[in-house]
Design a protein around this nucleic acid. Sequence first.
DNA 1: TTTTGGTCCCGCAGAAGGAG
DNA 2: CTCCTTCTGCGGGACCAAAA
Length: 398
Amino acid sequence: MDRVESIKDILDKRELAIAEDDRRAVSKANKALNSTIKSNITKAQEALGEDNEYKEYFLNNSEHIKELLAVNKEVNTTEEAINLIHQVDFRYIFGLDVLIEKPFACEFINNELRVSLAFTTEEKANVEVEKEMEKYHGKETSILGYERFGMYVKELIVRGEPTEAWITYSLTRKKYLYVVGSKNKDNQHSIISFDIFDLYEIFMKCDINKAIQGLCELLGIRIKEFEEVRDRYERCKSFVRNNLTKDKFPILFELIGEHIHKLETILEEGIDKLYYHVESKEGMVFSASMQYLADIMGKGKSTINPIVNIFALLGLLRKPDVRSGIYGKGSNNDITYYYIPEYNNELFQKAEQLAMILLYNGERITASSFSYKNCIEKFGQEIANSIFKDKVTKARAS
DNA sequence: TTTTGGTCCCGCAGAAGGAG
DNA sequence: CTCCTTCTGCGGGACCAAAA
């Protein structure tokens, strides 16, 4: 089945599912459609490479584009921002000098020719595939091979001619689209359609969140829920810089003085991942795995682990309760979500007292030796469970 | 003594595979 | 095709040895 047919197939199935009100089938079709778009985005990214004319145009003309298209508006949610951005004619952003509905050559999605060949033996298959490849000399080909019914099946995918594309505005989907396919009268079809976010992902080689961020910045759209978080993180950063010192909080400094840069890195990571924040019961939270944090700090994850947990104990970051939260469904590990509260004297005073207990009340526990076990000893089961959350999961499972 | 990094373990969730 | 089981990769955390 080639690409055009498979897309048609999915669309037909979805239509049928909608008609029959079969929600499971609808979501299945949507999922298939999304993954098709995603794989096409990846393909297009590979075809265009890191530097391409669209990116260049965008970067060279961003000031001019801003003047021309800026919305300069504050919105409350990402949803609102997305809806606004969909109304922007992206031809001006990426320098697509074409008329609406008028076909032009698409540079980054090619037609594919699929040739299936079946053989009785592996050797024969290899020889014949060689021969077949000769026909497409000079063209990019890839081979899929598998065994079926005792036969050796080889499938050649030959990169064909460039496709046609055109720009359209979809009234039903309420957005501009870059449609790829063919506008030929007797063979009109579309392979895929990209919206402004997909295109941004392709040209700028990034994911959807960065695309939202980039376009918001370009168009002067401020998403209130994110900007508030950014401002708070910035205040936290300067609070740490100005107050987490030997003379203001001596014991706290003794405990985590060595790790201040790690705390700052987490705050910076929060700012960097601003558009990856999700709503939770506690407020806006973001996720970063131990491995990821360790990598950006140039350390091992088992080094970072106790430090992050000590920050959690001190109240410098919170691990929100995932079980009653609305997020995290289907995502990897909920334990890596962090909420960072406003830093102030009161919070640091409390942290100072906790540091006192850790260092000078009974067994001396330093930041890097902090663990579930000694957390229970010093602070009890309840607090330990709120920090080492997977322990709770494990306890429930047994 | 404290910090760091390697390695092991365990649970989870999605994928793959198999049965009906 | 659907449901159930098994497999696998990922990620957090523990422990221990080595480094600073």
